[in-house]
């Protein structure tokens, strides 16, 4: 991720090393300060969460005796199926976002020549962050429902003789609801990464005989990988934990891990909540690990001699 910032820096052998911005004691203090804050605010709650998952509940009371009951119960109670479904939905949504988001980010960064146009698109991309997710999601009910906009149009034009029922309260509608919500987190990091690619590199590639497709594959894609990874994380995480869309557009038919967490929470079964959350985090880590492995294996696709 540092490759673009380092293009300008000459080799240490020729130019004396740039003086660091902060002097050593200040830098050291800042490092340890931030590390400590991060540990207290992020890591400690996670550890507590993880520890909680080894307790059990009896009569709505948490029993503080370590046991594996919660974890074994997790896998014996059919939640394995829920996990697989959650994974499938989250990955499908993330891959669709990537397929749509990458070309869009490429266009926005390199194809859109008017800076006004670019500013407008970027503003539009951030608007969803200012609106509540549930109010944005619930609108789809009026559009996708049996008596909704689409079915009304289909019926009145005679394209179908009865309402299409898979549009709402189905896996389709859950995917459909998540895609617009998770589009900005995928597009923005990729857009940033592509913006940082010097136009000169693209011209050099063209000048050396590369077709646009070759330039895309050998220069743009490898140089935008940091953005793609970031977009993947920012999209997959929320997709795994999504509960608004499955709740509002799944209509109780699409059970994901988030709804399991919610029902456990309402039943005051905190160890189950902890175990499920830890499990989601674990899943995310495993998926990211896999992604890193894949990138290391195929990330060299842009290189010419492999």
């Amino acid at each position: 991720m540092t490759m673009n910032t380092e293009i300008d820096g000459a080799a240490p052998a020729v130019r004396p090393r740039r003086r660091p911005l902060l002097r050593p004691p200040v830098a050291k203090l800042a490092f340890w300060g931030i590390s400590a804050a991060w540990f207290v605010l992020v890591i400690v709650p996670l550890i507590i969460l993880f520890v909680f998952s080894f307790f059990t509940t009896e009569y709505f009371q948490t029993v503080y005796t370590p046991s594996l009951d919660t974890w074994t119960g997790l896998f014996s109670s059919g939640r394995f199926e829920v996990t697989l479904r959650t994974l499938r939905v989250a990955l499908t949504v993330t891959l669709i976002e990537l397929a749509v988001g990458f070309p869009f980010a490429l266009w926005l960064a390199k194809g859109c020549r008017s800076s006004l146009g670019r500013a407008i698109v970027l503003a539009l991309l951030t608007i969803p962050f200012f609106l509540d997710l549930s109010s944005r999601t619930i609108v789809w009910r009026a559009i996708l429902g049996q008596g909704g906009l689409i079915n009304t149009i289909l019926l009145s034009t005679g394209l179908t003789d009865q309402p299409v029922d898979w549009l709402l309260y189905s896996e389709f509608s859950v995917h459909f609801g998540m895609i617009p919500a998770l589009f900005p987190p995928m597009v923005l990091p990729i857009y940033m990464a592509i913006t940082l690619i010097d136009d000169n590199l693209l011209e050099a590639s063209n000048d050396l005989g590369a077709t646009p497709a070759q330039t895309l594959w050998r220069v743009i894609v490898p140089l935008s990988l940091p953005g793609v990874v970031a977009g993947f994380v920012f999209t997959l995480g929320p997709a795994l934990a999504a509960w608004v869309e499955p709740g509002m557009l799944g209509g109780g038919f699409v059970n994901l891990l988030s709804s399991s967490i919610e029902s456990a929470y309402t039943a005051l079964r905190y160890p189950v909540v902890a175990a499920l959350s830890a499990f989601v985090i674990g899943l995310l880590l495993v998926l990211l690990g896999l992604l890193m492995l894949i990138l290391r294996r195929f990330g060299g696709a842009g290189l010419t001699l492999r």
Partner: peptide, 25 residues
């Protein structure tokens, strides 16, 4: 071919890969 003012070398490739780029293309 052009030698660019700021060189426009591909930062994700080694020296050899940069030079071989036009040939691989």
């Amino acid at each position: 071919t052009t030698v660019f003012q700021n060189y426009a070398l591909f930062p994700h490739m080694s020296v050899l890969e940069n030079v071989a780029y036009g040939l691989r293309i």
